[in-house]
Amino acid sequence: MTNKLDTVLQTAPRPIQLMTHVVAGYPDWETCSALVQTMARSGVRLLEVQLPFTDPLADGPTITAANQAALDAGVRPEDALKWMGEMAAALPEVAFLVMTYANIPYAMGLSRFVDACCRAGAQGIILPDLPLDEPEGTYAEEARRQGLHPILVISPDTPAARLDFLLPQASGMIYTTLKVGITGASKDLAPASLAYLETLRRRTQLPVAAGFGISQPEHVAALRGRAEVAVVGSHILGLVTRGDISAVEDFLRACTSL
């Protein structure tokens, strides 16, 4: 069976795809579902679903607060995957990716977790704090066997030798941050980030997804030709936190029409 992530990236109708991010169950299930529908309607074909965790190490204030709010509302990993399964069934044009931190799959059991993601219609798994050179890095093989892409997250400071180790094990796409830091909307994209994408390009055949800091349609436009996917997380979540779902649609339309 072909992976939907590959299909989306191969038949890209636009020069750059958007990957958006939701925290499962945030701010509540109903709004979260409406948000995903809005994203799909606005042309989003890649959607990252974060299973909330108490200690989200790579996340800035916006996403950290959303994780905490979802946990306070009682969202469990099983609920999140069940909900994602329903969304994935309703939106077959969208490739859903599960993102969370290592302790969630570790507590569930890595194989069970990969199975559960697979059953929920996930096309990929993103675990930023589970490196391939630790024993549990075997989840990547397991995911691939089930037709899911384990998506590696690298950053502009990842040294060449480390890339030589990582890139051959990447699949689906390579997810790189545009800055060395945590998630969060930035005002500007540094020219150095764009230059870095050019060098990364020369090292891999895989599609590149670039994120961390994207907050304006112009940022997305600037990534065109340098990355296949622009990842927008905190900015949209910030709009959601302010209760402004309609602004999400406006923003996404502006991104896709530029």
């Binding site: 790579a58 704090d129 490196p131 990582l166």
Partner: peptide, 8 residues
Amino acid sequence: YVPEMLVP
């Protein structure tokens, strides 16, 4: 067990 950006 850290994000890649802490490895260096």
